[in-house]
Simulated scan of single mutants.
Amino acid sequence: MAQTKSGLAHFELTSWQALPVMPIYMEQLLQLVNQTLAPLGITAVTKTMVNSYVKQHFFSRPVGRQYTRNQIVAVIVVTILKQDFDLTTISRAILKIRDSRAIEPRYQQFKVAFERALRLQSLQLTPADATAQAIELAAQTVGAHLLTQQRLS
């Protein structure tokens, strides 16, 4: 689904506090994550994808087939990062966050940074030339990607 500049400029990820306190089942996880990310036009998360994330150790196996806040935010963040990063890079980032045992504050940092990036990029775009805008965004994306790779190494 295509988004207008203003649509993405107003996008907000679910806050930590708004996430379910009690563990949820797979279907609830998929519904929550897909509703959250739908405005971004990202491909819907599937059960197979979530199971793959578990196998790749992005987060621990669910207990009693139920997923906690930590696992929910991992699915959200991995799904967003997959838009630009390979799974090896994502794994390095997730492991650093997991090892820090600071999942809630790191998710909040990601939330704020992601929303800020969408707002700033939307504000900086001028309506004159869509191709020039795409070139500018692509160059910024690659630059940010390279800097991210360097920081995770």
Rank of each mutant, 00 (worst) to 15 (best):
T14M: 08
Q83P: 04
H10K: 14
Q83C: 09
I76Y: 07
L81Q: 13
S15G: 04
L147G: 05
Q83L: 13
Q140N: 10
M26L: 06
A18Q: 15
L147M: 14
T126K: 05
L29C: 10
A113H: 01
F114P: 04
V77P: 06
T141S: 13
P39V: 00
E12K: 06
V73C: 02
K82W: 12
I80Q: 06
Q124A: 09
A144F: 10
M1G: 05
A93K: 08
P23C: 13
I103C: 10
A2K: 03
L32F: 00
S91I: 10
Q71H: 12
A130S: 07
A130L: 13
Q149M: 14
P20F: 12
L95M: 15
A132G: 00
T126L: 10
N51L: 04
L32C: 01
D86E: 15
Q66K: 11
L13F: 13
H57N: 07
T36W: 01
T89E: 14
M1C: 09
A2Y: 04
L95W: 13
K5A: 03
E115D: 02
W16K: 08
T43N: 04
T36H: 00
R106I: 08
E27I: 11
A2M: 05
I80A: 05
I76C: 08
L152W: 15
Y53V: 08
G64Y: 02
V112N: 09
L29A: 05
F85S: 03
P62F: 01
G143K: 05
H10L: 11
P20L: 15
Q28I: 07
R69K: 14
E27N: 08
Y25N: 12
L40Y: 00
L137R: 04
A134P: 02
A134D: 05
P23N: 10
I135P: 01
T14E: 10
L8M: 09
Q71L: 13
N34W: 00
S122N: 07
I76M: 14
T131Q: 13
Q133H: 07
L37R: 05
A130T: 11
M22R: 12
Q31A: 05
P127W: 07
A44V: 06
A102R: 15
V45E: 02
I97Q: 09
M22P: 01
H10F: 06
A113G: 03
I103D: 14
K96Q: 15
Y67P: 02
Q56C: 10
M1F: 07
H145A: 11
R106M: 14
F58A: 03
A117D: 06
V77W: 11
P20N: 12
L40E: 00
L120S: 03
Q149Y: 12
L123T: 05
R98E: 15
S153A: 12
